[in-house]
Design a protein around this nucleic acid. Structure first.
Lengths: 164, 164
DNA sequence: CGGGCCGGTCTCGTTTTGGAACCGCGCGGG
DNA sequence: CCCGCGCGGTTCCAAAACGAGACCGGCCCG
């Protein structure tokens, strides 16, 4: 099995990870959220090699996570988050919460404050129905519609998989 | 700058990513959450090469995310999540929410249900103070204690950085 | 015309990865 | 006792990914 084939598995954790799961991609997106838009700015703030950066930006554009366009005011190129890209923010905030908890011995390097009230923003995993916070132990995965169509793809007899 | 040196930056997103941000590590942890504990089980469910798996499991144990021990009942080895590892779950759920939204054209492959009430669990980014849900646009990062000690490490005059 | 900045490409040496063979151990059966 | 097997783990090599830096054409400005 080639690595990219993991993207075919019926799992909404695996599929994004095939795109986002490498050394640089999430760091590039983090930079995007802090306002970085230009090729050279990404390169100097991250320390990534130019060829790698070019490759990663291209993939993100392919996947509709960033857009590449000429800036309004000038002639340079801008890479900006799409809505799909914007929605990656909770992933970064979940990573931050974990980083603050376990890799910040001197306290959090940054507070991420709600602009309106100066409170701090955190991710929480909660049940839609009862509203209470939950952890991994409170959750049972069970097959959903995307699993069923994967088990019997229309007009085919392929084998399927269990939900991960 | 070598890649590992990114772990020295005062940023709670960058630091975890140096550990978790590669092709396999989060996939290994995802398998852990589904109950996979044994070397061969990881290898066959993920399709990772044995040498790579050995390396990644070793790193996760080093970082206190997994523990390696002999199973109670038998003679085989078990890799189990520590509390630190357990707390990675929200990261995986944030990835899943994004995957369900943008990479599951046939609907979610799996429902992650609250065991007690059968509701579905989702991550949300909310303000601790006012409780309202927020997005990237509502948030302003500002320096925290970990940034200040990084700017002036005790007994040194190193230069520091802005919060990312 | 000359220099600088821009995004982008090319080349080359290094690092990381995948695949598969190999190893030692403990166990269980013949 | 010996043989085979499944286990976690290691070693080796070829292939892929990567980093560093030179290089390129386009554009603007002086």
């Amino acid at each position: 099995m080639r690595y990219e084939d993991l993207a075919d598995l019926p799992c909404s954790i695996t599929r994004p990870l095939v795109i986002l799961g490498d050394r640089w991609t999430l760091l590039i997106l983090k930079a995007s959220f802090t306002g970085v838009r230009r090729f050279n700015a990404f390169q100097s703030t991250l320390g990534i090699s130019r060829s790698r950066l070019q490759d990663r930006l291209g993939r993100l554009v392919e996947h509709g996570i960033l857009t590449r366009r000429q800036a309004d005011d000038g002639d340079h190129v801008e890479y900006r988050l799409t809505r799909k890209g914007h929605d990656i923010y909770p992933i970064l905030m979940a990573i931050r919460d974990w980083g603050d908890a376990y890799m910040a011995p001197d306290g959090p390097p940054a507070h991420y404050r709600h602009r309106d009230c100066a409170g701090e923003a955190h991710v929480q995993l909660a049940c839609d129905a009862c509203g209470t916070g939950v952890t991994a132990r409170d959750i049972t995965p069970e097959p959903g519609p995307g699993m069923l169509t994967h088990l019997r793809p229309p007009g085919s007899g392929r084998s399927g998989r269990q939900p991960d």
